[in-house]
């Protein structure tokens, strides 16, 4: 039960969506873009947010893309996690999507919602960061294409009226060797204590993680440390973990110290697998 009412609209085009967003903002109605809705509904119920209007973007064709073209895999912002997973087009992203929330919720949660949400894990960003994905945004200047990393520092840095239309993933990433490990406090269906994703590009490991810090991160230094093939997996894992020590967070799911312990174990097993050519 949501205590305060809001207006609901379902635009058919990006332009309609944004125009309505601007108009409602100007009249003080505090609109939000809405896709899968799970986070917005729960936050409205809890009284954490009180939008005057929700603008449902699921009916906009541009946000529903899921296709391969010559250079890119195009993933519409309103694609559900389950649809991405079942498409099998980007195996690493599919794995990550399959470990967010639970299967039924994966039939609702969207790529755009996961990236823009306030829940800090935003795990779909991990494969996209590793793949040097682009985002197509729609805002004041119409569409613009940007590298994900330029508008995502662990959270999306969009203009208030801007929305994600789609993510574009370069084709090399779809077939690159990959690794994903999600660790939880003890129950599989839980927020990650740590979620680690890795892609192999030109024989170099790319690694990003969520859960350790208050936002997802991909660190150059960590990747440099992990890619020192002359050193043992245990050694590089310890060195990489030390680089992230200050960012580890305490939460009810686990302490910072324990997260670092889990990180080190996970990185070691990742590098072991890599050295053993198991990924």
């Amino acid at each position: 039960m949501i205590a305060y009412d809001f207006m609901y609209m379902q635009p058919d085009t990006l332009r309609q969506a944004r125009e309505n967003f601007l108009r409602l903002s100007e009249s003080g109605q505090n609109p939000v873009y809405y896709a899968g809705g799970s986070e917005i509904i729960t936050m409205c119920r809890a009284g954490d947010i009180r939008p005057g209007a929700v603008i449902d973007i699921k009916n906009i064709d541009a946000c529903q893309a899921l296709s391969l073209d010559e250079d890119w895999l195009r993933l519409g912002a309103a694609c559900t996690l389950n649809r991405i997973k079942e498409s099998g087009l980007f195996p690493l992203l599919g794995l990550v999507c399959g470990r967010i929330a639970d299967h039924t919720n994966q039939c609702r949660i969207t790529l755009g919602g996961n990236l823009c949400g306030s829940i800090i894990y935003r795990e779909t960003s991990l494969p996209l960061l590793l793949a040097d994905a682009k985002l197509i945004l729609y805002g004041a200047r119409g569409r613009r294409a940007l590298a994900l990393k330029s508008v995502f520092d662990g959270r999306m840095r969009l203009q208030p009226d801007e929305l994600i239309v789609e993510a574009q993933v370069p084709l090399w990433a779809l077939n690159a060797p990959y690794y994903h490990m999600k660790k939880t406090a003890n129950e599989k269906i839980d927020y990650p204590l740590l979620s680690v994703a890795a892609l192999l590009y030109e024989d170099q490991l790319r690694v990003a993680c969520s859960g350790l810090a208050d936002r997802p991160l991909r660190s150059k230094q960590v990747e440099v440390a992990l890619n020192r093939r002359a050193l043992s997996p245990g050694t590089v894992a310890a060195k990489a973990t030390a680089l992230l020590a200050e960012q580890a967070r305490d939460s009810v799911e686990g302490s910072a110290a324990y997260r670092l312990f889990v990180l080190e174990n996970t990185l070691r097993s990742l590098v072991e697998d890599w050295h053993d050519e198991k990924i």
Binding site: S38, I41, T42, V54, N82, D102, T104, N105, C107, R108
Partner: peptide, 22 residues
């Protein structure tokens, strides 16, 4: 809150938690 699944219905063939759908 979408956590227990007791409200699950099927929408267009897919399981959906009806507490998280308007």
């Amino acid at each position: 809150n979408g956590d227990c699944g007791a409200c699950t219905v099927i929408v267009d063939g897919w399981p959906i938690k009806s507490c998280l759908m308007l």
